[in-house]
């Protein structure tokens, strides 16, 4: 399968076969490192919005394949943001320096616009509250790793489904795998309309809930998310919902033995640290898998892996 030059912008652009292929390549990367696969290639890592895991795992993935990394970690650090240069012009220019661009930007649709400004592949590391497709690929990789399959699973997605871009990408990608989805969120933070319409169109079974307790014993995966404080226009509104969902160890008593708790991280208070030592916790392994999935993607879009 040829991914050379392909942008990874939004899950609906990626077919099921392509997702399966990325996951298979990532599994190979996890088993067998390939430290000089992308020697002499340059990754531009452009993070206009703060990031820990996504940026560092992209950069580590690049380093572990022998690449060199240029870029910045906050928009204020680059002069283009400060001087008011358009994103289009910045990307057009950076595309002349680098072989591939990984980026995160607070504006929705920024990665799509970037892909129109350059011929170099764009890997979207999050565009505002819209999409986070590489997170989704590592989520799928992790679900498959823990459940030995992707099809026909019961999956609850909990927390900030309105602003949480990972939940949008994940729900859309899972649509390929005949899941039963449970969306657990306060009414004000439920899944946006355009995602629900997408799921209905693709005949995905889903229901909406306000309490974790109503679904936790039914599911194979409990996907927790953080309430996105930075996207709330009104701080008071945030205070009202910030501690609605807290997963505690005793809530895991009646769950399925194979159930795994996932979280894109960072967590704030939504998973108590005592959960970490249970057999159900899998969020740190999930974050590690980001490395292999991003290595696979870099190799694929640069045409060095088929």
């Amino acid at each position: 399968m040829d991914f050379k030059g392909k942008d990874i912008i939004s899950i609906p652009d990626i077919s099921k076969q392509e997702i399966d292929h990325v996951l298979a390549i990532a599994a190979k990367m996890k088993k067998k490192p390939n430290p000089s696969l992308l020697k002499d290639k340059v990754l531009a890592s452009l993070f206009y919005e703060p990031s820990t895991r996504t940026r560092l795992s992209f950069e580590t993935a690049a380093e572990r394949l022998g690449m060199r990394v240029i870029g910045f970690a906050e928009a204020g650090v680059s002069s283009s943001g400060k001087k008011g240069e358009s994103l289009h012009d910045s990307i057009k220019n950076i595309g002349l320096y680098a072989d591939v661009i990984a980026m995160r930007h607070p504006a929705e649709g920024s990665a799509r616009l970037a892909s129109e400004a350059t011929d170099k592949p764009i890997l979207n590391g999050g565009d505002g509250a819209n999409q986070h497709p590489t997170q989704t690929l590592l989520d799928l990789f992790t679900i498959k790793e823990t459940q030995k399959k992707l099809s026909g699973l019961d999956i609850a997605i909990v927390g900030d489904l309105k602003f949480g871009r990972t939940t949008h990408s994940l729900a859309q990608a899972l649509a390929y795998y005949n899941p039963r989805l449970y969306f657990v969120a306060p009414e004000a933070l439920q899944m946006p309309d355009h995602i629900l319409k997408f799921l209905k169109k693709n005949k995905v079974k889903f229901s909406q809930h306000e309490k974790i307790e109503n679904v936790i014993n039914k599911v194979d995966i409990l996907y927790m998310t953080r309430i996105q404080k930075e996207r709330f226009p009104d701080p008071l509104e945030y205070e009202r919902v910030k501690n609605v969902y807290v997963l505690t160890e005793d809530m895991l008593e009646g769950v399925k033995p194979n159930m795994k708790v996932m979280h894109p991280l960072p967590r704030v208070d939504e998973i108590e640290p005592s959960v970490d030592k249970t057999k159900h916790a899998y969020y740190f392994q999930q974050a590690e898998n980001g490395l292999y999935v991003r290595q696979g993607l870099l190799g694929l879009v640069l045409g060095k892996l088929k």
């Binding site: 358009s86 649709g109 509250a129």
Partner: peptide
């Protein structure tokens, strides 16, 4: 929050 309301596109 759409990029088209920030960039000239």
């Amino acid at each position: 929050k759409c990029i088209t309301n920030m960039d000239p596109q």
